[in-house]
């Protein structure tokens, strides 16, 4: 059972992810922006972050970059509506381990997590 942090500014999306994940994973916290994501990660170092890109205050790519700099072995999956190749390249550069585009189906989320955090 992996410990997961959900970072998304949409309450609707956080609920949806929680519903998909909580059966097999331990959701340690939900946050609404990149600053909170970094803070919570530093405190609790979960096994995985499900990270939105477009968020207020600080976006998910910047947050990923900071987390990955300090914790190179951390796991971050971008979970975003953005389907732009340039953005995906930025995410790779920041160190993201996976990329899920919204809207997603449950199996693709499960599969992406399996690839990144083998149980």
């Amino acid at each position: 059972m992996a410990e997961v942090l959900i970072a998304d500014d949409s309450e609707f999306m956080r609920n949806l992810l929680r519903e998909i994940l909580e059966e097999d994973h331990d959701i340690i916290d939900e946050v609404e922006n990149g600053v909170e994501a970094v803070e919570v990660f530093k405190e609790q170092q979960p096994d995985l972050v499900m990270m939105d890109i477009v968020m207020p205050i600080r976006d998910g790519i910047e947050a990923t970059d900071e987390i990955k700099n300090e914790f190179p072995n951390s796991n971050v999956i971008m979970c975003t509506s953005v389907g732009q190749e340039e953005k995906m390249k930025e995410a790779v550069k920041a160190g993201a381990d996976g990329y899920i585009t919204k809207p997603f189906q449950k199996p693709s989320v499960i599969e992406a997590i399996k690839d990144v955090v083998p149980s």
Partner: peptide
């Protein structure tokens, strides 16, 4: 709340094509 997230996803769906054709990124606010 549901409309807000749907709007977000539709917005991305709509502008991603421009970004990919132009080979650059188009950022948008929440």
């Amino acid at each position: 709340a549901a409309i807000e997230e749907l709007g977000n996803i539709m917005t991305s769906g709509f502008v991603d094509g421009w970004a990919n054709v132009l080979q650059r990124s188009v950022e948008h606010t929440p």
